[in-house]
Amino acid sequence: MTQRIELVINDRCRTVEVASNTTLLEMLRDQLKFKSVKPGCWRGDCGLCLVLIDGRPIKSCLVLAQELDDREVVTVEGLLDNGNITRLHQSFIEKGALQCGYCTPAFLLASEALLRRNPHPTRERVCESMNGILCRCTGYKQIVDAILAASE
């Protein structure tokens, strides 16, 4: 059983035919080939599949694709500014906030959402906002530093 939904992904209108049991993760990654949306646990524990829905960071493995009718989704590709990286990307690169890169899209999206709502967060607020995303490489310190530097 499929349903046609219309939504905006990274500023582009899309019409997608989705099955009722298709999750947003599957729609983005498998159907529409946004491979930056990473699977990691399929139960909301790790946060790697995070995307922004109407500006809010949400784990896409816990969302049905059909719910997205008439909504706006941003993946990490959508954070580029006319194809160029932004201050946030630059800050991640300069501070060494990425290693294997598997969690990087999720952290960038969550940081973007945080800084839009709270342009000058405290270190504690940054941690609290990012606790839903796991990283096994960096030890997190350089990610916190990158977000704080981007907020200055």
């Binding site: 909301g44 829905i53 960071p57 949400i58 784990k59 969302v63 906002s129 606790n131 839903g132």
Partner: peptide, 9 residues
């Protein structure tokens, strides 16, 4: 409770 992203849902 859980985390910021899950709390959004």
């Amino acid at each position: 409770m859980c985390d910021d992203q899950v709390r959004n849902r």
